[in-house]
Amino acid sequence: MTTYVALLRGINLGGHKKVPMADLRDLLTGLGHGDVRTLLQSGNAVFTSEERNTARLVTGLERAIAERFGFEVPCLALSADDLRAVAGRNPFPPTSVDPSRMFVTFLSGPVDPERLAHVDPHGYPPDEYRVGERELFLRCPDGMGRSKLAEVLGRTDLGLTATVRNWNTVTKLLAMTDA
């Protein structure tokens, strides 16, 4: 049995693509997953599964969401071990900035460096980013809403499914995988 974290992209924002968390829990349980828990209203779920193939797990989840809710939602899934590894790769010390102003963009695969070649990681002070294995780490001391770097990165086509979580959410999800 593997513990997973599912990250749904772009749900429950401004009244669009509504996916109530109780319904998401029911959907995951109906797919045969166990110990299903959700965090916040933004599409974060922790659950256990017999499935070992993450791509199959994501495909099944995306298909089930489309069938139940009538719209497509890109999803990512990481094992608890993968999420711990992401946290361990964070190049920014958590004490260097308010954790609500530090972000991880989770990606469906490794980013092609050419797609980010135009974005200087140090060219938008005090904001900065670093590329991980299948994630981008972003530090915005003044907040993401004021960040020119976040704006540029948000407009950059990485050719991958991507979804952003702040460091508080990442650490809460980690704690849920240990519970």
Rank of each mutant, 00 (worst) to 15 (best):
M1I: 04
Y4Q: 06
Y4E: 03
G10P: 10
G10T: 13
G10S: 14
L13F: 03
G14R: 08
H16R: 15
H16L: 06
K17Y: 06
M21P: 06
A22Q: 12
A22K: 12
D23R: 11
R25K: 15
R25S: 15
T29G: 15
T29L: 13
T29V: 11
G30K: 02
D35I: 05
V36N: 11
V36G: 11
T38F: 08
L39M: 12
G43D: 10
G43Q: 06
A45Y: 10
A45N: 12
N53Y: 03
R56P: 01
R56K: 07
L57P: 03
V58W: 04
T59P: 08
T59V: 10
T59W: 04
G60K: 02
L61Y: 05
E62N: 05
A64K: 01
A66F: 09
F69T: 00
E72R: 15
P74E: 15
C75Q: 10
L78A: 04
D82G: 09
R84E: 14
V86H: 00
R89S: 09
P93T: 04
T95K: 10
D98Y: 03
P99M: 01
P99W: 00
T105R: 11
L107Q: 05
G109D: 13
G109W: 10
D112L: 08
E114T: 14
E114I: 07
L116V: 12
G123Y: 10
D127F: 08
D127T: 07
V131H: 11
E133D: 12
L136F: 13
L136G: 07
R139Q: 12
M144I: 15
R146T: 11
S147P: 07
S147G: 07
K148S: 14
L149E: 06
A150H: 14
D157T: 09
G159T: 01
L160V: 03
V164I: 13
R165W: 09
N166R: 04
V170Y: 02
T171A: 07
M176I: 11
A179P: 10
